[in-house]
Amino acid sequence: MALFNDMIEPRCATRHDGERVVLILSGDWIIRSAMDCEALAEQICNDLRAAVVAVDFSALGRLDTAGAWILHKFRGRIEYSGARVQVVGVSEEHRLLLNEVDAHHPPPFVPDNNRTSIVSVFDSTGRAVVEAWRDFIAILHILGSLSAVVTTVLFQPKRLRGIAIAVQFDKTCIGAVPIVALMSFLIGAIISQQGGFYLRQFGADLFVVDLAGVLVLREIGVLLTAIMVAGRSGSAFTAELGAMKMQEEIDALHVIGLNVTEVLILPRLLALMAAVPVLAFVSDIAALTGAGLVSWSYLGIPPQAFISRLQDAVTMQTFLVGMVKAPFMALIIGLIACVEGLKVGGSADSLGRHTTMSVVKAIFLVIVVDGLFAIFFAAINV
């Protein structure tokens, strides 16, 4: 306590030596007097008018890192005003601390060069490729961890967290039914209206049923569902895991000996892989309902004729082609969401950035996978 009670108030005396102004520092420039030091330095900088300023440290008392940093800024402000600064009377102990602070000051601000050039294009492309490769490695890491966890669960079924899976299924599936059904209904109605508008010019109004049925069951239903799930559930997974990462809850799970993949990732992936096929089926029904109502009101095709034509146009194989894609798209969305969530740093900006990237990457890969499935089914004549 004696060390705190005998603190000497920081002071700065001014003496004129010809054209040079000498600032004589005294007292303790330490963290306990930091506010007084800041105020004193501010006052001196405002009143000082000289071409050469000498800062005398010979009478200085105690000095710590906070005081050295204040003196560093004080000296910088004097030099910025156009004066030349001379440092005199510095003890070896104070010199070491001042040199250390000078060596670790923040680098000067350098504005970004926004000029477009071939080098900048190659640079940004290379960075994007490196980032994509890191994401690929992270996904492989989670897949390997999932394989080990699933193997463990197969031999020890009690380790499967059924309640967690049910909770995530409720969030990703049951809660998403209204928005998926509404959006699919509108998309089906638009497809039917636009298709009927052009087909009626050739007297082929009835073929709008074939168009809507095949397009919805093979492509639009599952693709639209996957995009909405990526925006709704994928972003939620990333935000949840990112918030846990920021609050060090994931580190706490490691400390108490729990497997993060088993506790957090596996239930989400299993729930999502079960939810997306259900939502895709709901999307198909809603889209066909919308197409049927628009065909009835806009093209004059009654519901009985629509259903009869739909049975002739599509088969169970058409329906299964779309449903087979659903679990794979769900797996991709879940993996991307979990990878981005675990990459979140300690700031809100990092959380927002990775949540956005999760949605963008998931939608991009979902569309890529849909294209690969289309090529595959075309190759096997399905």
Rank of each mutant, 00 (worst) to 15 (best):
E9F: 11
P10T: 05
R11G: 13
T14W: 03
R15G: 09
H16Y: 07
H16W: 11
D17H: 11
G18M: 09
E19K: 12
E19H: 09
E19A: 14
R20E: 15
R20H: 12
V21C: 07
V21S: 04
V21W: 07
I24W: 02
L25N: 11
S26Q: 11
S26H: 09
S26W: 04
G27H: 10
G27A: 13
D28E: 14
D28N: 12
W29Y: 05
W29V: 00
W29M: 00
I30F: 03
I30N: 00
I31H: 01
I31E: 00
R32G: 03
S33P: 00
S33T: 15
A34V: 03
A34E: 00
M35D: 00
D36R: 04
D36K: 08
C37D: 00
C37R: 00
E38C: 06
A39E: 02
A39Y: 03
A41E: 02
A41D: 04
A41G: 07
E42L: 09
E42S: 09
E42C: 07
Q43T: 15
Q43Y: 09
C45A: 12
C45S: 13
N46S: 14
N46E: 13
N46I: 12
D47Q: 15
R49T: 11
A50S: 14
A50H: 02
A51W: 04
A51E: 15
A51Q: 14
V52W: 06
V53G: 08
V53D: 00
V53S: 01
V53Q: 05
V53E: 05
D56I: 08
D56K: 07
F57S: 10
F57T: 09
F57K: 07
F57V: 05
S58K: 08
L60V: 08
L60G: 06
G61F: 11
G61M: 11
R62L: 13
R62N: 13
L63F: 13
T65K: 06
T65M: 08
A66V: 15
A66H: 04
A66M: 14
G67V: 05
G67C: 04
A68L: 03
W69D: 01
W69F: 07
W69C: 03
W69G: 02
W69I: 01
W69E: 01
I70F: 03
L71H: 08
H72A: 06
K73R: 14
F74Y: 11
F74M: 15
G76Y: 06
R77G: 04
I78E: 01
I78T: 05
I78C: 01
I78G: 01
I78D: 02
E79G: 10
Y80C: 07
G82L: 10
G82I: 12
G82S: 13
A83I: 04
A83G: 02
R84I: 09
V87F: 04
V87G: 01
V88F: 08
G89V: 11
G89H: 08
G89R: 05
V90D: 04
V90H: 00
V90W: 02
E92T: 14
E93I: 13
R95C: 09
L96E: 10
L96T: 05
L96Q: 06
L97M: 11
